[in-house]
Simulated scan of single mutants.
Amino acid sequence: MTERPGPGWHKTALELGPVAAFFAGYVLLKDQTFTIAGTAYDGFIVVTALFVPLILISTAALWRLTGRLSHMQIVTAVLVTVFGGLSVWLNDERFFKMKPTLIYLLFASVLFFGLYRGRSYLAMVLSEAMPLTPAGWMKLTRRMAWFFVALAVANEAIWRTMSTDAWVNFKTFGLPVAMFAFFIAQSGLMQAHTPPPTEGPD
């Protein structure tokens, strides 16, 4: 399907809105307990139960707005549904906290597999927005793959050793900041491997 142009702020709101709503819901409900059908659920589980349909609705709306979804958006929606659903069904927050680990390990595995085949799958996703030479894409892909591994390790370390508050803050603010810092740190690579502009005919 051909991608349809849409208002930039709509797309940004649909991508970031569910995460912001999860954080706001957690802050409001984290100290509360809800008894449903005789079972007590804490605020984290209730917010997770609300987050799953919200991410599905926002993903569907994003597809309707733009006419396409990235592989990352599809995988994220599926894993949120599976592991969020498990957390709610089993009343165990650990499943939802594991979800970022699996997402980042999956992305790292895909990028490493592409590198093994001598290809940059990252270039297939970002080449239109960020032109680089083939050598530059291979270097950036290798760094991105290891960065995903580092994020997976960080997520595991934080949810297993720190409080739920710390994990929610890490997921809401730490991960986006880390991603932004990573790309800022690659500015030298991008400058060195930006292809020269093609000259048109005189």
Score class of each variant (00 low, 15 high):
residue 200 G to A: 15
residue 32 Q to I: 05
residue 81 T to W: 03
residue 160 R to Y: 12
residue 129 A to T: 04
residue 85 G to E: 03
residue 92 D to R: 06
residue 143 R to T: 01
residue 79 L to K: 09
residue 1 M to E: 09
residue 28 L to D: 08
residue 123 A to D: 02
residue 120 S to L: 04
residue 38 G to Q: 09
residue 121 Y to F: 14
residue 49 A to S: 13
residue 68 R to V: 00
residue 100 P to G: 09
residue 2 T to Y: 06
residue 69 L to P: 14
residue 48 T to D: 06
residue 130 M to T: 05
residue 114 G to K: 01
residue 174 G to P: 14
residue 116 Y to E: 04
residue 201 P to F: 09
residue 29 L to P: 02
residue 132 L to M: 11
residue 53 P to Y: 00
residue 27 V to H: 10
residue 73 Q to S: 12
residue 40 A to S: 15
residue 79 L to N: 09
residue 54 L to E: 07
residue 151 L to T: 02
residue 173 F to N: 07
residue 154 A to W: 05
residue 60 A to N: 07
residue 15 E to K: 08
residue 138 M to L: 13
residue 71 H to I: 10
residue 4 R to S: 11
residue 141 T to H: 01
residue 197 P to F: 04
residue 160 R to C: 08
residue 97 K to R: 14
residue 11 K to Y: 06
residue 199 E to N: 10
residue 93 E to V: 10
residue 147 F to V: 02
residue 35 T to W: 02
residue 63 W to H: 13
residue 80 V to A: 08
residue 167 W to G: 02
residue 28 L to A: 15
residue 76 T to R: 01
residue 147 F to M: 06
residue 129 A to V: 03
residue 155 N to H: 10
residue 126 L to F: 04
residue 48 T to L: 06
residue 111 L to P: 07
residue 34 F to L: 12
residue 167 W to D: 11
residue 117 R to H: 06
residue 135 A to D: 15
residue 8 G to F: 09
residue 147 F to H: 11
residue 149 V to P: 10
residue 132 L to E: 00
residue 8 G to L: 12
residue 173 F to I: 06
residue 54 L to T: 11
residue 34 F to T: 08
residue 67 G to R: 01
residue 163 S to I: 13
residue 86 L to W: 04
residue 97 K to M: 14
residue 152 A to D: 07
residue 31 D to E: 15
residue 167 W to I: 02
residue 185 A to W: 05
residue 154 A to P: 10
residue 7 P to R: 14
residue 154 A to D: 03
residue 147 F to K: 01
residue 172 T to P: 09
residue 12 T to C: 02
residue 129 A to G: 15
residue 179 M to H: 13
residue 8 G to E: 05
residue 20 A to D: 08
residue 110 V to Q: 05
residue 145 A to Q: 05
residue 144 M to P: 04
residue 194 T to D: 05
residue 12 T to G: 05
residue 39 T to N: 12
residue 113 F to S: 06
residue 141 T to D: 00
residue 62 L to M: 14
residue 169 N to D: 11
